[in-house]
Amino acid sequence: MSEPAPSPGSSARISAPIATPRAGFLHAGLSSVTKKYAVAMSGLALVGFLFAHLAGNLLILIPGAFDQYAAALHASPLLPLAEIGLFAVFVVHVALALVCARANRDAKPQKYAVAATRGKATLASRTMVITGCTVLVFVIVHIAHMKFRAPLFGNPTVETGSQWVLRTLAHPLGALFYAAGVCAVGVHLSHGVWSLFQTLGWNSKRWHARLTCLSRAVGALLAAGFLLIVVYALLRGGR
């Protein structure tokens, strides 16, 4: 005899088990959407930091203000805490972004013989891993140079932090390195900002055009702001 047909109201599927997330230590049992969420949230935090960082750094245009600001910052007992937090956010962003990037590569092992796009993908959106890795290298060198004063771009004897910044940024290699680094951040964010809104679910047809516009503006603004400091150092000839 054939089995009785299941009644429409009692489908067995409603209680079917939910598939387990991707195996492997690097995925940490997280779904793709969760990992993307963490990349977006940490990206948002990093963008927030960049605005604060730029605002503080622009004080270098006002004589004396930057060193005063730096002294106040270093006097705060909260600084080490903030630094550890920022470092953790950065590590989460980079680690999960790279884990996703690797899974994405594995999902498309064979490319098409004819490479074509429909004109929607942008240079920035297709090169997030490359601009991201450029920023990673930049940040490591940047911390060695500014925080630990590694003599990478000349080794001037200085009395204040602002002198170290302006004199090493006036070094041709220093200027070039910083210009390239902040441009990479700008390109990363020209896609990253609207992308994070989309990933977090804060997007719709109504907002899409405005958010992509905002994204480019944020990328351009941050890059231009930091570049201004490099140009200022070059104009001042390092003094």
């Binding site: 939910i18 387990t20 793709s32 993307k36 996703c100 994405n104 594995d106 429909r118 929607k120 993908a121």
Partner: peptide, 28 residues
């Protein structure tokens, strides 16, 4: 709620990648 959790989990288990918002899908 169960639907979205189960469908995303199955999507991952099948070996699809994660969206990087290049928008080529919408255009295609």
């Amino acid at each position: 709620e169960r639907r979205v959790a189960a469908m995303v989990a199955q999507m991952d288990a099948e070996g699809f990648g994660a969206c990087t918002n290049t928008q080529e899908c919408e255009a295609a």
